[in-house]
Amino acid sequence: MNIRHATERDIWQLAQIESRCFPEAEAASAAEIAHRVQYYGNHFWLAAEKQGIVSFADGFVTDYLNLTDAMYEHAEMHNEKGHWQMIFGVNTLPEYRNQGYATAVLNAVIEDCRKQHRSGIVLTCKEHMIPYYARFGFIDEGVTDLSMHGGAVWYQMRRALDY
């Protein structure tokens, strides 16, 4: 497995993975992914095998403390010098789940954020995923009223970083 960052040539494959991992109302389109890669391709972490990308996480950096719906649509809000790494999605193709790919991706995110001296990482997830992210040190902050993305109920989780 190789962990790398996104380039323009990855957009179509990332959009295909996103569409298989999230309901239509929540999945980023190819155009949205292209916009994100343009602004923060180095904040996509892709797990790739010989056959292609099998898992990825992405999100931009900001000084805002909480993840909001506007962030999904406005990649230009990315601030490379920001303190908080937002994670908009962790995607693993269904046939590659429970094989350590998402774990490798999240560990790469955490390690890169440490090297970049970020204050921490913020994500939102559905209730059933809270125990999974807690294994990485994310703390459940409860249901957020700042994100109703796709009409779902989201729990905000935060992983503070120490150096």
Score class of each variant (00 low, 15 high):
Pro23Cys: 08
Ile33Asp: 01
Arg20Pro: 01
Ala30Lys: 14
Ile17Pro: 02
Ala34Trp: 01
Ser19Met: 10
Ala27Met: 05
Arg9Ala: 12
Ala25Asp: 15
Asp10Glu: 08
Asn42His: 14
Gly41Phe: 03
Glu18Met: 08
His35Ile: 04
Cys21Phe: 08
Asp10Gln: 03
Trp12Phe: 11
Asp10Ile: 00
Gln38Ser: 11
Arg20Trp: 03
Val37Thr: 08
Arg36Thr: 05
Ile17Trp: 02
Arg9His: 13
Pro23Ser: 13
Ser19Arg: 14
Ile11Arg: 00
Trp12Gly: 06
Ala34Tyr: 00
Phe22His: 06
Arg9Gln: 14
His35Thr: 13
Ser29Asp: 12
Pro23Gln: 11
Pro23Trp: 10
Ala30Ser: 15
Glu26Met: 10
Cys21Glu: 07
Asp10Ala: 03
Asp10Pro: 03
Ala30Trp: 04
Tyr39Met: 04
Arg9Glu: 10
Ile17Met: 02
Ala25Ile: 07
Glu24Asn: 09
Gln16Lys: 15
Arg9Tyr: 04
Glu32Cys: 05
Glu32Phe: 03
Cys21Gln: 08
Ser19Tyr: 07
Phe22Asp: 02
Leu14Arg: 05
Arg36Ser: 10
Tyr40Ala: 07
Tyr39Lys: 09
Arg20Phe: 02
Glu18Ile: 06
Arg36Glu: 08
Ser19Trp: 02
Glu26Ile: 04
Gln16Asp: 12
Gly41Asp: 06
Gln16Glu: 15
Trp12Ser: 12
Leu14Trp: 05
Glu18Asp: 11
Leu14Gly: 03
Gly41Leu: 09
Tyr39Leu: 07
Ala15Cys: 13
Gln38Met: 09
Ala34Asn: 07
Asp10Gly: 01
His35Ser: 09
Tyr40Asn: 03
Glu24Gln: 13
Gly41Met: 07
Glu8Pro: 00
Ala27Ser: 12
Arg20Gly: 06
Gln16Pro: 05
Asp10Lys: 01
Arg36Leu: 03
Glu32Val: 12
Tyr39Phe: 08
Glu8Leu: 05
Arg9Cys: 04
Ala27His: 06
Arg36Pro: 04
Gln13Lys: 15
Glu32Arg: 09
Glu24His: 07
Ser19Pro: 05
Glu18Pro: 01
Ala28Tyr: 00
Val37Ala: 03
Ala15Asp: 11
Ala28His: 02
Ser29Leu: 13
Ala25Asn: 15
Ser19Lys: 15
Tyr39Cys: 09
Glu26Val: 12
Val37Arg: 01
Ala28Pro: 04
Ile11Lys: 00
Phe22Gly: 02
Trp12Ile: 11
Asn42Ser: 15
Pro23Lys: 09
Gln38His: 14
Arg36Ile: 02
Ala34Asp: 07
Glu26Arg: 00
Cys21Asn: 11
Gln13Glu: 15
His35Val: 00
Gln13Asn: 13
Asn42Cys: 06
Leu14Gln: 10
Glu18Gln: 11
Arg9Phe: 04
Cys21His: 07
Gln13Phe: 14
Ile11Met: 04
Gln13Arg: 15
Ala34Phe: 01
Gln16Tyr: 09
His35Cys: 10
Gln13Thr: 14
Gly41Tyr: 04
Ala15Lys: 09
Ala30Asp: 11
Glu26Gln: 10
Glu26Cys: 12
Glu8Thr: 07
Ser19Gln: 15
His35Asp: 13
Trp12Gln: 14
Ile17Lys: 00
Glu8Gly: 04
Ala30Thr: 08
Leu14Asp: 04
Arg9Thr: 09
Ala15Trp: 08
Tyr40Phe: 15
Gly41Gln: 02
Glu32Gly: 10
Tyr40His: 15
Ile33Phe: 02
Asn42Met: 04
Ser19Asp: 09
Glu26Phe: 00
Asp10His: 05
